Each structure stands twice: as structure tokens, then as C-alpha cells.
Amino acid sequence: MLGFRGRFSTKSRSCSTTLGTLRAARRAWRTERAPARAGLPSTALIVGHRVYQGSGCNPGGAPLVAHVWHRREWERRFIAEGG
């Protein structure tokens, strides 16, 4: 590329800014502007609260689970019979 060895965009550390410094500056600028672009205040308060609800199915989900089980059983039989 134009008589240069290696990447054409490589910059000399002694004469100019390095690409890593430019990337860091862009990252900082995007981080500062992200809340403003989303319409959020510059500071954010994140509140999280999790409570263990249990495992398995609740009584309202039992019909859905039964339907899925029957459907899979039907498909298994269909494939076993060569369908």
C-alpha cells in the first residue's frame, strides 16, 4: 500500500495520537452522551429487588404443561410409526 509496510493506518507514537487513544476518547464521549440521547437524566438510580417465587409450575400453568406433554407424546408416536 503506497510503499508502506504493514497497515496503512498505523500511526507513529512519536508524531501523532495513537489509535488506542482515539478509541478511548470516542468511548468516553459516547458514554457521556448516551443518557442525553435516550432522554434520560445524566444520573441514574437503579433499584432492584428480587424475591424467590418458587420452582415448577403454578396451578394456572398445568393445562399448558399437559397440552405440551400430549403434543410431544403424539409427535413421538407419529415418528415411531414411520410418519
Rank of each mutant, 00 (worst) to 15 (best):
R30M: 08
E75V: 04
A36V: 08
V68F: 04
T17D: 01
M1V: 12
T21Q: 11
A44S: 10
A66K: 14
L64V: 07
R26K: 13
T43I: 00
E32G: 03
R30Q: 12
A44L: 14
T43D: 04
G83Q: 08
R27K: 14
T21M: 00
C15W: 12
R7Y: 08
G54D: 05
A62D: 04
G39P: 07
S55N: 12
E73D: 11
F8K: 03
K11N: 06
F78M: 07
M1W: 05
T18P: 00
C15S: 14
W29N: 02
F4C: 02
E73H: 09
A66Y: 00
S12W: 00
G61Q: 15
Q53S: 11
G54A: 06
L2Y: 09
S14W: 02
G48W: 03
L64Y: 11
G83F: 05
G82K: 02
P59A: 09
F78L: 12
I79S: 05
L64D: 07
T10P: 00
A62E: 13
L64R: 13
L22P: 00
A25F: 06
R72S: 04
S55K: 11
P59L: 04
S42K: 13
R26N: 03
T31G: 04
V68D: 06
H49N: 13
T17G: 00
S42H: 07
T18W: 03
R72T: 03
G6E: 03
